[in-house]
């Protein structure tokens, strides 16, 4: 009896979830299209790069795109500078392990993780440019843990 009663409620909850999910995906698609328009032109690269005396790289674990507490505190130190800049360019990179195309996607994930953090901290999403180079532009070309750790990074540059 109880089961009979619970079933329609479960279906209703599922239906609601589906609706929320589909709405969310619609929204994100339209947002991305907007952003793409601004990403295509790299005109800002002609402008001067703003120099800061802070470490401009955030590092990640293998096959991960999660910011840890240390990364977050580094980004927070960076926030005033970032807020002053006209354009913030985030460049995602990976180490040489794993496949190239997958790493390209992973680098993008990493850069977006940083972007999301900055947006939460009040940086306008409009001035953030995201690009991934996957494993194509390593900092260190050696094949060891140390080089890999340095290569799994997001580079932040301000214009």
């Amino acid at each position: 009896m109880r089961r009979l009663f619970m079933e329609p409620i479960g279906i209703f909850i599922l239906a609601m979830l589906c609706q929320v999910y589909s709405c969310a995906s619609n929204v994100s698609d339209s947002v991305e299209r907007m952003q793409y328009a601004s990403v295509a032109g790299e005109e800002y690269l002609l402008g001067d790069k703003l120099e800061t005396n802070l470490d401009d790289k955030v590092y990640f674990d293998f096959d991960k795109s999660i910011l840890d507490a240390e990364d977050k505190s580094l980004l927070e130190q960076y926030l005033p500078e970032i807020k002053k800049a006209k354009i913030v360019r985030l460049e995602g990179h990976c180490d040489e392990r794993g496949t190239r195309e997958y790493n390209l996607a992973l680098g993008e994930r990493r850069a977006l993780e940083v972007r999301d953090f900055l947006v939460v901290k009040g940086v306008s999403g409009k001035k953030i440019r995201v690009v991934s180079f996957g494993e194509e532009k390593p900092l260190k070309s050696a094949s060891n843990e140390k080089a890999w750790a340095e290569n799994r990074r997001v580079e932040i540059s301000l214009y």
Binding site: S28, D29, V31, E32, R33, Q35, Y36, V39, E101, L104, A105, E108, R109, A111, L112, V130, V131, S132
Partner: peptide, 23 residues
């Protein structure tokens, strides 16, 4: 944002590829 990994279909009429909308 990112277009990658193009591969031709066996008939050569289309490509399978990867498009990234917002990561």
């Amino acid at each position: 944002m990112t277009n990658s990994a193009p591969v031709w279909s066996p008939d050569g009429k289309s490509l399978a590829l990867v498009v990234s909308f917002s990561g």
